[in-house]
Design a protein around this nucleic acid. Structure first.
Lengths: 250, 250
DNA sequence: TCCTGTTTCAAACAAATTTTTGAAACGGAT
DNA sequence: ATCCGTTTCAAAAATTTGTTTGAAACAGGA
């Protein structure tokens, strides 16, 4: 009989399963990820997943924990040395780390891709991964942006500028294939990442400088001039009511 | 016996199936989308999908075709009137259309979300949807950006600026949940879309203006100053070899 | 060596999902 | 009214995929 189901990262098999699971879940997400493919890649028996992790969901959880731990070590986006630099350089360093995570080829972070799947079709683990992985990064970036925008910037100004900046690398979390298809010349440049870092840092800083100038010119409001009016934004979710099948989806 | 399996959009049932399928596939993608949920939502029998579309894959194909046709009509991003405006206004209009597609609540385009799923975990339909849906939009945007950057801009300059601009709305194709979690104040503003349009247009134009100034100041090269060096970018795909199960995935 | 707890394995099992089937309902034309 | 092609339906097969099982292999210590 299995000890309790609850195991973590002791045996060599369990370790190989975690690595293979990271790959598979990164590629296809939780629901579409096949545990048969995982055990094949890990050279393990089908029952190993249940023995070591108590099931597919347990393996997923363990994989997330495993990856989160590794990501913190391998791609630090914060450090005392960084904090000592001017905000422009802090931003540049931040951009580099993020782009390496997303475009860094074999070194790219599977966790990022899993987060992408969770964003599109969340599982119960969504909240946890958002809080543990994304929030710290956003918080750090918000600090940098606030420095760049200066004291006149409102919270919303900072939020908007943070979004615009981050989106320029978050794009590659999803859009790598689109990038390669639409801009093949750029995408095949061996220096892509460097050129992207340069460009994103340059244009983000330029945009924020312009915003700062606007804010410091007009002392009254902080919202840019409006032109048109109406909008809305809500959307349905998959109801947990309607006694349907298992709720592997949120 | 089914006529041939090949049907399109004649019967009322087939139409309802298409609508329900658009919703389901937009939410969960092809693989995770359940045909049982589709027929339930459409008030049709389980066998109807096979009768009318020859199977789940046929329904998916038909849904894509159906949505592509509708998207062209409902959210035009190009027109003679638009072309007559100054490029700044063209960009603003473009941003608005795209944000409405992604954040427009019930009016948001299911096709966009399906594209998102395809980007993350492509099916054989990926090429078709990229070519038919995305490419025209990118091409139009590239034109606008080229106008804004002026004649000194190289192809790569245009590509980079296009990416930076587009990424600011493409973000919301995937990141809506993140947006809501990280910037709740902004996300619940009833005027979000308008504020985002204003901000994205403003900061994109500011960034491009800065790039243009840089280009026109230094006549020689067109690449911004470098700082660090190395990088790479490749990644494995799921091999079609290794006689595995059906290749619903690419 | 023998015992004991752990790990691996092939096969069976179970649950969920897609596909098929054969009959019934339907609707218009003869 | 009857015929015939089309469409719908409930039920059953087939497939895919996660889980369980019972035995065998393994490892370390009495």
């Amino acid at each position: 009989m299995p000890p309790n189901g609850r195991a973590g990262e002791d045996g060599a098999t369990a370790q190989r399963l975690l690595d293979a699971a990271a790959h598979e879940f990164a590629l296809h997400g939780f629901q579409a990820g096949r545990i048969r493919d995982i055990v094949d890649a890990a050279g393990a028996n089908l029952a190993a997943v249940n023995y070591h992790f108590g099931g597919k969901e347990g393996l997923y959880q363990a994989t997330l924990a495993h990856l989160a731990r590794r990501a913190r070590d391998e791609w630090p986006f914060d450090s005392p040395e960084l904090r000592a630099m001017p905000p422009e350089d802090q931003l540049r360093a931040f951009v580099r780390v993020m782009l390496m995570r997303y475009l860094g080829g074999p070194k790219a972070s599977p966790l990022s891709r899993i987060l992408a799947h969770e964003l599109l079709d969340p599982t119960p683990a969504f909240g946890q991964i958002l809080k543990g992985v994304s929030q710290p990064q956003w918080a750090r970036l918000v600090q940098i942006v606030r420095d760049l925008l200066g004291p006149r910037a409102s919270e919303d100004d900072v939020s908007l500028a943070t979004l615009s900046t981050a989106s320029q690398w978050v794009f590659f979390l999803f859009g790598r294939r689109m990038f390669e298809a639409v801009f093949p010349a750029l995408a095949t440049d061996p220096d892509v990442v460097d050129r992207l870092v340069d460009h994103i840092a340059f244009s983000s800083i330029a945009a924020m400088r312009a915003t700062r100038e606007r804010l410091e010119a007009a002392p009254a409001t902080s919202r840019p001039p409006r032109r048109r009016a109406p909008a809305e934004g809500t959307e349905k979710r998959r109801g947990t009511a309607k006694g349907e099948a298992k709720d592997r989806r949120i």
